[in-house]
């Protein structure tokens, strides 16, 4: 954890910002590639997926942080997975009950959050070593970073693949949708170009 902020408030702010940009899970850590590529064909499912991840991440970080002193080192991964699986199941049930359309659109990718590396990475790297407050802030930052990235990716793809945003037409009539952007190829190309852009901005040499 970076600790170049001043005092507790500085540390909190730093942790929050780390997830949003400096250690952005998708652009900088390259974690959670499966949902990044799979559910970003449209903004709405991407946003739903992001919210699910935030929920699971916050809950699992809270639980892991609370029991961090009780963890047996060789059983910790088991505990993490158990915790994550529980909250993912709850999120899945919630979607089925209150957002049936999104649940159908996301299909297997909600249950697959269980194996999303971001969550187990945060449990291992942050929550199992830090106090409750910082774990929550870390979870919110990381989750928000993930969600924003997903939405940015999905925005570009949905706009080009269908000419719509959130299902509403925004492009002029003469626009012919680029169907390929809605296919896996669109996901790979857009992600690649965005990674390139981020690397250019941060001045990282190829």
């Amino acid at each position: 954890m970076a600790t170049d902020g001043e005092g507790t408030a500085g540390l909190y702010k730093d942790t929050l910002l780390a997830g949003l940009w400096r250690e952005n899970p998708v652009f900088r850590l390259l974690l959670g590639m499966c949902p990044t590529l799979a559910v970003t064909a449209a903004v709405k499912p991407a946003l739903t997926m992001g919210c699910c991840v935030i929920f699971v991440l916050v809950c699992s970080n809270i639980v892991v942080s609370l029991m961090r002193n009780l963890l047996r080192p060789h059983l910790r991964i088991l505990m993490f997975t158990l915790t994550i699986a529980t909250f993912v199941t709850i999120a899945d049930l919630f979607l089925k009950a209150f957002q049936p359309e999104m649940s159908a659109a996301l299909g297997p990718y909600v249950p697959l959050i269980i194996v999303n590396c971001i969550i187990i990475c945060r449990a291992e790297a942050c929550a199992s070593k830090n106090a409750l407050a910082i774990s929550i802030i870390d979870a919110v930052g990381m989750g928000a970073g993930f969600t924003l990235t997903l939405c940015a990716l999905a925005g570009v793809r949905e706009l080009l693949a269908t000419g719509k945003l959130f299902g509403a037409s925004v492009m002029p009539d003469w626009f012919v949708p680029w169907a390929a952007m809605g296919m896996p190829v669109g996901a790979f190309v857009t992600l690649g170009l965005m990674l390139g852009l981020v690397n250019t901005i941060t001045g990282k040499k190829d």
Partner: peptide, 9 residues
Amino acid sequence: FLTASFGML
């Protein structure tokens, strides 16, 4: 890419 995007054209 064109074939995947604009199949009809």
